Structure formats: structure tokens, C-alpha cells
Simulated scan of single mutants.
Amino acid sequence: MAADAGGVPVLRELLREHGLGPYALWRTSRTPDDARLIERAWDLAAVRESHERFVARFAALRPAEAASGDAAAFVARTRLVHAWRGTFERDPRLPGALLPDEQPGRAATRLFVDAWRTLREPADRYWHGLTGDQATDGV
């Protein structure tokens, strides 16, 4: 099951390459009436728990990490990104209309983006100091 309809052509090609095309069942839905199908395809309770753990761990992350030095910002951002990847891998990124009420994914995403932006400049400065690379915008 693909949460993103944009990925369907790639998924079809992958299944075809491996000889699995004849065994695939395709269904497209854009309505909240498919809650049972969604619950069967993804463990939304585990997704919720993953987001809640992420928020609990990083909610206290404040601009203080950025202000406490470039090295501290680099460490905080590295931990943030590593934890986010684990969360992101579990989350199918379903449209909001297909999610249960009060799914914490949006809050976790907002926290990640805001914290990453806060830590970006000092963390990049520290990295470029370690590597000797010239800092470039966006890297």
C-alpha cells in the first residue's frame, strides 16, 4: 500500500521488475471512509507513539541550544535529525482527512522544522569549522 499516489508508478515498476505485478491489488481512495483499510495497512497507534516520543524528547529544545555554542547546536541537531528519521520511517504521511483526530504528526513535524531552523546556522558553522569547508548557503 502506498500512502502517496505520486509513488504509484514507481511502485508498479518495482513490482513489475521483480515479477510481482500480477499479485498486486490496486485501490485508490481519497475519502475518510476507508479507515478500516488504513488501520489494516498501518499501525497508526505505533505511529502516534513514535510522534509522541519525539515531541516529549525534543519539546524542551529551545534556542538555548543554539545560543550555548556551535558544538552544542551541532550535537542537538544531529540528535534531532537522527530521531526524526526513525519517526519519519514509521509514518505513512497520510492526508489529514484519513487520520484519526488529534494525530500528533503535525505537531512533531512543526517541532522538527522549527528546531532544525533554529539550530541550522550554529550547527553548520561548527561543521564547516571541523571540515575546513567553506560555508555555502543551504549546505
Rank of each mutant, 00 (worst) to 15 (best):
E89S: 09
L14R: 13
D91R: 03
P63G: 15
E17N: 08
R117L: 08
R40A: 15
T31S: 15
F58Y: 10
A115D: 01
R93L: 14
A115Q: 04
E102D: 15
A59M: 04
D43K: 09
R117E: 10
A76G: 06
W84K: 01
T78M: 04
P32H: 02
H18L: 11
T118K: 00
P22W: 09
D133R: 14
D91I: 01
L11G: 14
R106A: 10
M1H: 09
L111Y: 01
W127K: 08
V55Y: 13
R12Q: 15
M1Q: 05
W84L: 02
G69H: 02
D70A: 14
F74Y: 14
T109Q: 11
W42G: 06
A66Q: 07
P100F: 06
R79H: 10
L61Q: 01
W127E: 13
A83L: 06
T28Q: 13
L99P: 00
A73G: 05
E89W: 03
R12H: 11
Q134R: 14
P122Y: 09
G96W: 09
D34I: 08
A83Q: 00
A35D: 08
L130F: 06
P32W: 03
A64S: 06
L130W: 04
E17M: 06
R125Y: 00
R62C: 03
L94C: 02
A71M: 11
R120V: 02
A76R: 03
L11V: 15
L94Y: 03
R53V: 04
A108F: 01
T109C: 01
L20V: 03
V75G: 03
L20A: 14
R16M: 09
G69V: 05
L94K: 02
G69P: 05
V10W: 06
T131S: 15
T136N: 07
R117F: 03
W127F: 14
L80R: 00
P22R: 10
E17S: 07
A60G: 11
A76E: 02
A72I: 03
G69I: 04
L15Q: 05
T28M: 12
L44E: 00
H82I: 03
A108Y: 00
E121M: 11
E65F: 13
E121S: 09
W116Y: 08
